[in-house]
Amino acid sequence: MEFLRPATWEEALAVKAQHPSAVPIAGGTDVMVDLNFDRHRPDALLDLNRIHELHTWQIADDDTVRLGASVPYSKIIDALPDRLPGLALGARTVGSPQIRNRGSVGGNLGGASPAGDAHPPLLASGATVEAASVRGTRLIPIDDFYLGVKRNALEPDELIRAIHIPSATGPQQFAKVGTRNAMVIAVCSFAVALHPRARDVRTGIGSAAPTPRRASEAEAFIRAELDDTGLWTSAGELPLSTAKRFGELVARAAAPIDDVRGSAAYRRHALAVMARRTLLWTWNDHRATGRAAA
């Protein structure tokens, strides 16, 4: 096995082009488990730790956060909870403090596990993945990024440089079910983001299908419902029946399986409950801030 340690981003891309089978390692919280348990023996490891820019973020003029691929979750929780509330909530549920000090969104995307906790908030906020290779840079909409169980849209010579995430313009929530009160991989998870300016609601479902996915029918339903009832304008109370229906549609969007962590039926059920609750939380927040602003 080789251990490749590029010092700059350009070098990293060159190395990846030369060794397409080299496995990038950022926080190592996925890669090292595979190595320690002999599940994987790559020809080479490509260490990204020395590339400083991957640990930084910038705010663009349009308020989009360009989050370096290796920024650890603990930084997102500390520094970006206002701009990226959904992702920060998801980040707080990842593993333990020690894992959050190393694990990164770039790593979550690289692994593309359906259970990754960054995925639902990224889907709900409409993020874009900045992938690069010596051939150039591509911006991959998050909706096109996940291709299958632990498969993503990266080409063998590509690396994730950053994730572009629009700053929140409304409340966002994330909830995940696990059978322990901390340090647990998602049995299933759900994120919702209100986009009041666009009068849009977006969602993300985790660990309940081969890939993270949005609940499109539920989104369409709630969009229409909010429009039709004039709730965006009135900022009135969201009827419980609407939230329930939303939950049912979210559950219907999932395609879960039975495994040691939970049954398919439970996953569907839990998604419906989480979707209903988180929608109400965000809506009530929206009303409260709306009133405060008024």
């Binding site: 251990f3 390692i25 890669v31 090292m32 348990f37 603990s74 333990s96 190393r102």
Partner: peptide
């Protein structure tokens, strides 16, 4: 555990506590 789940291997890495079982040796250069 060597899988990041127990924290018994926690060390400071540049001032942050991390699971040393999940840091590749070459990364601490």
């Amino acid at each position: 555990c060597e899988q990041g789940e127990c924290g018994s291997c926690t060390v400071y890495l540049d001032g942050d506590p991390v699971c040393s079982c999940l840091v590749a040796a070459g990364q601490v250069q």
